[in-house]
Design a binder for these strands. Structure first.
Length: 191
DNA sequence: TATGAGATCAACT
DNA sequence: GTTGATCTCATAC
């Protein structure tokens, strides 16, 4: 039996439940992707979340139904991919930070320009470059092409820690990763 | 190994 | 005008 597809119901829950359960799930975009090994949760009550100060043109998708992609430009250069969670209007999301590359390796290498497999999808910007994600994917449902999402078939050991690259609410341990993965964007601090 | 600059855009003060 | 949910390359130790 093939692994279950993750649909809107999976995302219609708190980010704090969804985020750790995404570790080990499989994500592909247009057939290119791999196993999710690192995510971060952004709750609407969280000062570091884009939605914290209310809807804007950029974050509008976060205020829509769960199970959709929220893509935004980071530092003027990169794209970042998020999965919208919780019931409509609550505006929480999970940032996808790193994948273990499994499908479409040659395509990822071509898009990235750098051959190092460990760095193909280690970080939100790199991941979007490797998978070809741009703002054109903003608002698309995650249970239909080009997206494909499958539940994990094992239960990996999960580690958590503080989120990366933020200054507000920087002490909240809402970053989750697969313990020991060599494809993380940065190592987790040991206990 | 570690720090620093540059790229470049939208939200915010 | 400043600040990011970042990455790469260069230079210094």
């Amino acid at each position: 039996m093939p692994p279950a597809r993750l649909d809107r119901r999976f995302f219609a829950r708190s980010v704090h439940k969804v985020a750790p359960e995404l570790i080990g799930a499989t994500l592909t975009v247009g057939g290119v992707g791999g196993r999710i090994v690192e995510v971060e949760a952004y709750h609407h009550t969280d000062p570091a979340a884009h939605s914290f100060r209310g809807p804007t043109e950029r974050n509008a998708v976060m205020f829509g139904p769960p199970g959709h992609a929220y893509v935004y430009r980071s530092y003027g250069i990169h794209w970042c991919l998020n999965f919208v969670c919780e019931p409509e209007g609550s505006a929480s999301a999970v940032l996808i930070r790193a994948l273990e590359p499994l499908e479409g390796l040659s395509k990822m290498r071509r898009r990235r320009g750098l051959p190092d497999e460990r760095l193909l999808c280690a970080g939100p910007g790199r991941l979007c470059q490797a998978l070809g994600v741009t703002v054109a994917y903003n608002g698309l449902p995650l249970d239909r092409p080009p997206f494909a999402l499958f539940a994990r078939t094992d239960t990996p050991a999960i580690v958590s820690g503080v989120r990366i690259g933020i200054s507000k609410a920087a002490n909240l341990p809402w970053r989750y990763g697969q313990k020991g993965s060599r494809f993380l964007s940065k190592p987790f601090k040991p206990e």
